[in-house]
Design a binder for these strands. Structure first.
Lengths: 348, 348
DNA sequence: ACTTGGATAGAAAGCGCTTGCTGCAACGCT
DNA sequence: AGCGTTGCAGCAAGCGCTTTCTATCCAAGT
């Protein structure tokens, strides 16, 4: 049926053990023998049986990448960067690993299930990207699962997610709080005093941190926040559109709208325009992440750039054991304020 | 060390065979026994060893999803839809499969390598999304690889990619040619006679088909095309920006720019604006795909909507054997012209 | 010339699971 | 009462690889 190691061995007139060693390159094999084996492999078009070798070697070459929403470039960019470092194809030869990205859709259950699936596959490493859900039971379950994975030898890396002290996982965290604060301070510096905030879904670390940064900026400048100025929604444009309309309804005198991310900001822009308001003359808008399309908004979006690709690449390297983890296993990745046309001084 | 089937069997006082059967649910087991086993599984926190079971059963629960660019929502949307149908988490219990998306970056070698990796893992199915590279040797290599995978029992589905007759793979193809034609006809109908075209990378089916549609429309209306009106580039905004500048340099009298996709169109819009031209008053712009952000361009982008999520979902179901393949194994998915603000009658 | 040791290659014992086949009650039939 | 069924459970033989341990060969050491 399918070609096996034994077939190759027979053809190359060596033992299966030798073929295995040639293929793994972890044991001295005479050059002439090696060549004979490789020729046989080629002639028979042999492909190693992954499951069998994983079973025997008790290690697999799978690396899992968990993302909240694969259709969102925020995750796509990170996943792409991680995967390209994982090696798989494109990486240097040798450790050819299969970087697989799994889309949780932001659902806690799916997150856990994927982790189990990866555990079942005995994944070599797992990278979790983006914010975490802040539900206590779920966090406990996650921590337990991660610990179990780690105990089984799976390397765990968090990319753009807060540290999980209990699990000892390496974490590259985005400084969402700092970025949010800086962004709002920029707006305050421009003269804004009544700022609406469109937050992401509740019970999410990213949502909370960005909002905290926003509020910290307000507090630092003695601006008392009106509870009506905050609306929660999803991380998509539609949600931004609706939330903006709601914000405008609650307080038409707002002079700025800060969005949880760029997609939401785009929706906000659309809603403002549809309401006959000009940006930034009537209302300033700010996003977060600086995804590629943000610069194409009209006017271009003021936002906080997160080095997604760089962070992803680093996370990938750490997951592969090709880069030293940061001291303490935790590193904070800062964002950079990008001031563009969507923010300006308020009227009057 | 780690818990094995045998441990569970011992604890439940049954044979390993029985545990396996309970877990797979493909053999009658007395209810009381089943319950005892499940309790033991739970108590020991047992997780099946994937490689071992794949080896023994000669089947795996991996399903590969190949995409050209994971950071591009075009692929992200399809991949998400496919993955959610693959089941994995979220799907109904039972056939819990791991849908893994692999990012080829549009590179032929990586595409092939991923296929080999999936073959090595004995993937249950593989879905290839998006356009194919039109290099003859590579196509032959791909066909051979796909055939081999198919022979090994892996189901192959092409989503948004032209059929590959040699391989007998199921194909859900986008009607890029038809969409391109319709789009350009819309522009011609508006009165445009000098249309620039920003094509995607050469040697790509998607690029060629869209361009052919564009040219067919021109030909059908007796418009002779100036070779200077076509520029090739990548499928990203940057490329669209540069190509537009080039187009303008070559022929400043163009009244419309048709882009290979929405991202490119966005770049085109930016270039036009930066050149002091208004859209659509001075120059009309059209994209392709209708990605979520297209409606947020200012003015909103005229484009062709491709039912990415629907097609992906269907491809996923077919890959899982949960839906009948289309008759003949090939289905054409049409796009829908979305006329919006970025296209209008030319000046004068 | 004889021992020693380095360099290769082979034999064989699993890795943890699945599954065809066998075993054995309890059951219903004539 | 005798016997074929039916329903469950266990035995044991692998699945295709890796890896430890052993065997062999030859160059070098004394």
């Amino acid at each position: 049926m399918t070609v096996t190691l034994a077939d190759v061995a027979a053809r190359a007139q060596v033992s299966p053990a030798t073929v295995s060693r040639v293929l793994n390159g972890n044991y001295p094999v005479a050059a002439s023998t090696r060549e004979r084996v490789l020729r046989a492999v080629d002639e028979l078009d042999y492909v190693l049986n992954g499951p069998a070798s994983a079973l025997a070697a008790a290690t697999s070459d799978l690396v899992g990448i968990l993302v909240n929403d694969i259709a969102d470039p925020f995750f796509g960019i990170m996943a792409g960067a991680i995967q390209s470092e994982i090696g798989g194809p494109g990486g240097r030869a040798g450790g050819e690993r299969l970087g697989v990205v799994c889309n949780t859709g932001g659902s806690p259950e799916r997150e856990l299930t994927y982790l189990t699936l990866l555990q079942r596959q005995r994944a070599a490493a797992v990278v979790l990207t983006g914010g975490a859900v802040e539900d206590a039971p779920h966090q406990a379950a996650m921590a337990a699962k991660l610990r179990k994975l780690a105990d089984a030898g799976t390397r765990i890396v968090l990319c753009g997610r807060p540290p999980s002290p209990e699990t000892g996982a390496i974490a590259l965290t985005f400084d969402n709080r700092g970025g949010g604060k800086e962004l709002t301070e920029h707006l305050i510096g421009l003269g804004h005093r009544r700022l609406g905030y469109i937050a992401g879904p509740e019970e999410r670390t990213t949502t909370r941190h960005r909002l905290e940064g926003h509020r910290a900026a307000l507090a630092a400048h003695g601006i008392e926040e009106d509870p009506r100025w905050t609306v929660h929604g999803r991380y998509d444009r539609r949600s931004g559109y609706e939330a903006t309309l709601e914000l405008l309804r609650r307080d038409p005198s707002l002079t700025a709208v800060v969005a949880a991310n760029d997609s939401v900001a785009l929706g906000a822009c659309a809603a403002l325009r549809d309401s006959g308001l000009r940006i930034p003359d009537d209302v300033s808008v700010a996003g977060f992440d600086d995804l590629p399309f943000s610069i194409d908004a009209v006017p271009a979006l003021t936002t906080v750039r997160l080095p997604l690709a760089e962070a992803g690449a680093r996370a990938g390297r750490i997951a592969m054991g090709r880069e030293e983890p940061p001291p303490g296993g935790i590193a904070t990745v800062r964002g950079e304020l990008m001031v563009r046309g969507s923010s300006g001084a308020p009227r009057g």
